[in-house]
Amino acid sequence: MSTIEEKIQGFKTAPFDARFPNTNQTRNCFQNYLDYHRCNKALTAKGQDASPCDWYQRVFKSLCPISWVAKWDEQLENGTFPGKI
Rank of each mutant, 00 (worst) to 15 (best):
M1N: 03
M1Q: 14
S2L: 10
T3D: 02
T3W: 08
I4Y: 13
E5F: 09
E6W: 04
K7V: 10
I8K: 02
Q9G: 11
Q9I: 09
Q9E: 07
F11D: 11
K12H: 10
K12M: 15
T13F: 08
T13A: 09
F16T: 14
D17A: 12
A18S: 06
A18R: 13
N22Y: 12
N22W: 15
T23G: 03
T23F: 14
T23S: 08
T23Q: 05
T23E: 09
Q25S: 10
Q25T: 08
T26D: 08
R27P: 09
R27M: 14
C29R: 01
F30S: 07
Q31T: 04
Q31G: 13
Y33N: 03
Y33S: 09
D35F: 10
Y36M: 04
H37F: 09
R38T: 02
C39Y: 05
N40E: 13
K41W: 01
T44N: 06
T44W: 10
K46M: 14
G47W: 06
G47N: 10
D49Q: 04
A50Q: 07
A50R: 09
C53G: 14
Q57H: 15
R58A: 12
F60M: 12
S62T: 10
S62H: 07
S62I: 04
L63F: 00
C64Q: 01
C64R: 03
P65C: 08
P65A: 00
I66L: 04
I66N: 03
I66E: 10
I66V: 06
V69I: 06
V69S: 00
A70W: 00
A70I: 03
K71P: 07
W72D: 05
W72P: 01
W72S: 01
D73A: 03
Q75F: 00
E77K: 04
E77T: 06
G79Y: 09
G79W: 05
F81W: 11
P82I: 00
P82R: 05
P82M: 00
K84C: 15
K84H: 02
K84R: 12
I85R: 11
I85N: 08
